[in-house]
Simulated assay, not measured.
Amino acid sequence: MQQKSQKKAELLDNEKPAAVVAPITTGYTVKISNYGWDQSDKFVKIYITLTGIHQIPTENVRVHFTERSFDLLVRNLNGKISFFRQPL
């Protein structure tokens, strides 16, 4: 039993911490409503244009997928937090 606990502790020590994103002190939330998509029987492609996206760190862009939807969160893009939620 003690070996299991020790191995579990070693695994936790070897895990990398999640990326830390600097908090935003000013700004406001913008819902992304201008987008396009293309779909086939197997795939869905989402097209979103965000001016200046190439100027922020990649860790400021978060996407979470589920079986039937996805969320996109972009932090600190031109002083804003941009959010997009789409059921598929």
Rank of each mutant, 00 (worst) to 15 (best):
R62A: 03
V20T: 07
P57C: 08
V74A: 08
Q86Y: 12
T66E: 09
N14Q: 13
N60W: 00
M1W: 14
Q55P: 03
F70Q: 04
I46K: 06
V63L: 10
Y28H: 14
L77D: 06
H64S: 10
N34E: 04
L73Y: 15
T49S: 08
Q86P: 00
E59P: 01
Q55G: 08
I24K: 09
F70G: 02
F70D: 02
Y47R: 09
L88S: 13
K7C: 07
G79P: 02
E67P: 00
F43V: 15
T66Y: 10
K31D: 12
G79V: 04
A22I: 00
I46H: 08
G52P: 05
D38R: 09
A9G: 06
G36I: 01
K8C: 09
T51H: 11
V21W: 01
V74L: 09
Q39Y: 10
Y35V: 00
V21I: 08
P87M: 08
Q2Y: 13
R85F: 14
N76R: 03
S33R: 06
T58E: 13
K31C: 01
I46A: 13
H64G: 05
N78F: 05
P23C: 04
T29V: 08
W37M: 09
S69W: 15
N34F: 02
A9E: 12
R85E: 12
E67K: 03
R75D: 02
R75V: 00
D41Q: 07
V20A: 07
E15T: 03
V61H: 06
